[in-house]
Design a protein around this nucleic acid. Sequence first.
DNA 1: CAGTGGTCTAGACCACTGG
DNA 2: CAGTGGTCTAGACCACTGC
Lengths: 259, 259
Amino acid sequence: MATHTADAAGVALTPPSATPAFSPLYQQIKGLILQSLEAGEWKPGEAIPSEMDLSARFRVSQGTVRKAIDELAAENLVVRRQGKGTFVSTHSEQHVQYRFLKLMPDNGDRNSEGPAQRRVLECKRSRATADVARALSVRSGDPVIQVRRVLAFAAVPTILEDLWLPGTAFKGLTAEQMAGYHGPTYAMFEVEFGVRMVRAEEKIRAVAADDVQAALLNVSTQAPLLSVERIAYTYNDMPMELRRGLYRTDTHHYRNELN
Amino acid sequence: MATHTADAAGVALTPPSATPAFSPLYQQIKGLILQSLEAGEWKPGEAIPSEMDLSARFRVSQGTVRKAIDELAAENLVVRRQGKGTFVSTHSEQHVQYRFLKLMPDNGDRNSEGPAQRRVLECKRSRATADVARALSVRSGDPVIQVRRVLAFAAVPTILEDLWLPGTAFKGLTAEQMAGYHGPTYAMFEVEFGVRMVRAEEKIRAVAADDVQAALLNVSTQAPLLSVERIAYTYNDMPMELRRGLYRTDTHHYRNELN
DNA sequence: CAGTGGTCTAGACCACTGG
DNA sequence: CAGTGGTCTAGACCACTGC
């Protein structure tokens, strides 16, 4: 093909601005693959077409498709497996389970303590307050599902969490689903609601436990706890969950790597 | 060239193990560039040779050098600038200053509050205790430099930090250097001691302030504080700093992005 | 304008997986 | 063995920078 910049793939609406908004071909290809991922053309855990197939579909070279997939893999949206294919990421069988949970036991790794015991205290329909609405990009008063639960490791209650989920996407979520599913909660969201969490942001603070929190986490009132406010996003930077967690950090710590 | 796997570039000592330890060419090139970076062939802020020059030097194609540099750029060891060249990263003029400081003001960004005011309380030679020695990979009793300081934003003391640095690499560090340098502390380490921090790990907990800490941070005793223990590494995963910080999180928060 | 990094191609071959 | 992703090459052209 002669020129690529404004080809079959197409650039999105080049407005008459000063900068012509040049977009490399592989970025356009990446966008097209992203659309297929969003549309559910390939489900989590399934293989996407081979690089050769995709290069034929989009009429570009294999190297260009490769660079597009490289970026998707860097963003953890797909996983490459040599000799087998490229697969849509999932919070289920992915061997890095609990991708977003950075709380680690002080001694040993996550495996040594086994999975968390879940205790769902509450799971109800509710209405978004102003701050919840802002976090979820909905309007105040819009329906939300609200969940409160305690996670325990080795029978020691360690995490107290409140979750807010947009009511439209999570219509019908029950406490039984929250408690009974084997595996990460985000894996259940994929299976039951087709919602895939892709990235998240966390704001962390140190706070003192109030009476209710202290009782639920089996610590004394005013004990220092780690407050972790998370907003989790699906495709297109669409927020799909607000989560406010309180972590006991007497036997665990929040681990972060800086580059 | 016919075959590359065991070429002039060379693979590092293929032992007679079951797996022949195959290493792609671009990884070997990356290793060679890394050696030059460590050896100081190009200083922080300087440009490294162009891709064409490097491909001539190593007798490989430009694409192979490119892939090697891509990885170095992904690890923030170098920065690419189109039309200008590829530059060795530095904590100095890099526009993402304070790369490793994740504490953000609740309102506005880092620029709106300006640089931190530094107050150095202590800067003394000392001997490594067992836990410090383990963190710095030295022997108990080896010489270390110990620093205690308070950082304030808008005249509000916000961070209380203790630093331990290996005595050999940081011989002669003074309180005046710690306090007087304009810019990030890690930039000063580059200029004054030739030590480049490349990555770091942090363990975060919630703790209650003791009397001394409370006085220095102008909070009440038992106030919840964020405890941030950092180990910073230079090349080859060599630990060069242990830092224990206490952050006030009443007007700031620790921000983290999860992918 | 020359020099830099950035994109794209076409083709060859290698390493890994599974039938 | 065929099919997948992974590596490597050589060459063309584009976008950006600064003289």
